[in-house]
């Protein structure tokens, strides 16, 4: 093409104003954030007590749950609401494999992820023909049905009495305390975080976002839309399964009460309040929101009120999440 044509095609040669520029892919700030996260994770056990480590373990489980939901909702834009069910599959798979075969925990963790992922692919293949509200409701129904199974399949899950699980082990090492479980949980979280970043930056992640932004355009670009959705859903179930297995490493007891819609909603709100569509948002949302609900645990009614108010106020005044909010405000300060 002639230079003249090129010049005519672009309306102005000046570079676009700064506010147009979307976040670039690799920024020093992001690498810094990742390094800081890693550093905190490494030094935490040296400075805090067992109880704090228990909370840390729990928060990290929620981080992985959020990363999984981020893949299917944030990246692919599919509102699937059965996350707690896959989390439950992970917990029970891991716990039962430990009880029955005494498998080393990395194996039961992988198994937990794979089984949850496989169930996710099957459910996704059926549910993802539906869109929007119907998808949300179908997956919601599946989640409730599965919780019912957890509650009523007494022989396997112990039903409402719960299930006692033997300590996770690797060779002769047995995990008996939160402090011993912490390195396992932290390393798994880091691996899952890296995997998420990898996916997000790859061809797979791009195809997920393409589906989120426009299904018809994605199709025209050669992306099999249905398969992309099922892949994202299966991956998110895999994450939830691994998170369940992480929970099993520092728990001695499983109860199906926490494996219902409430937990799915908790994870969803973490992802949304952190900032839908960003990995930092998913992680940050999990940590900030997890801490808030932990602080408020002593007073259940206040916890609910404050929790609800936070959600409402965020949706009113920081609709794109905590991180976008901070980013905007900080930007305004720097610009004067």
């Amino acid at each position: 093409m002639s230079d003249k044509a090129a010049a005519m095609l672009s309306r102005s040669e000046a570079s676009p104003p700064a506010r147009w520029t979307a976040r670039s892919n690799v920024s020093p700030a992001r690498i810094g954030l990742l390094a800081l996260t890693t550093a905190v994770l490494i030094f935490l056990p040296f400075v805090v007590t067992g109880y704090v480590l228990y909370i840390a373990n729990l928060l990290l489980v929620f981080v992985v749950l959020c990363l999984g939901l981020h893949l299917v909702i944030g990246e692919t834009g599919q509102f699937a609401l059965a996350h707690a069910a896959f989390y439950g599959i992970g917990i029970y798979t891991s716990g039962l494999a430990g009880n029955a075969f005494g498998w080393p925990f990395p194996m039961s963790m992988l198994l937990a992820g794979l089984i949850a992922g496989a169930v996710g692919v099957v459910i996704g293949a059926v549910a993802l023909c539906m869109r929007d509200i119907y998808l949300a409701l179908a997956t919601f129904a599946f989640g409730e049905a599965l919780q019912w199974v957890f509650l009523n399949w007494d022989k396997v899950t112990g039903g409402p009495n719960g299930l006692r699980i033997s300590p996770a082990r690797l060779g002769t090492l047995e995990i008996l305390s939160d402090k011993q479980a912490y390195p396992v949980v932290a390393i798994t979280t880091l691996l899952m975080l890296l995997l998420t970043i990898l996916i997000s930056r790859s061809r797979l992640g791009r195809s997920f976002r393409a589906v989120r932004e426009s299904e018809v355009a994605a199709m025209a670009m050669g992306i099999p839309v249905r398969r992309a959705k099922v892949t994202a859903f299966g991956l998110s179930a895999f994450y939830a399964g691994v998170a369940g297995s992480m929970f099993a490493t520092f728990s001695t007891y499983i109860h199906p009460d926490s494996l219902g819609f409430q937990t799915t909603i908790l994870v969803l709100t973490m992802v949304v309040v952190g900032g839908l569509g960003s990995i930092a948002g998913a992680v940050g949302g999990a940590v900030v929101f997890g801490l808030i609900s932990e602080f408020l645990r002593q007073t259940p009614s206040y916890q609910e009120i404050i929790y609800g108010l936070i959600l409402i106020v965020f949706m009113m005044y920081a609709p794109r999440g905590l991180f976008a909010f901070i980013h905007d405000k900080a930007g305004r300060v720097f610009r004067g």
Partner: peptide, 15 residues
């Protein structure tokens, strides 16, 4: 999510 927020507030308030 905002309606969910309301549900928490109402439940917390009744408690």
């Amino acid at each position: 999510i905002a309606t969910l927020g309301l549900s928490y507030v109402l439940r917390g308030f009744v408690r």
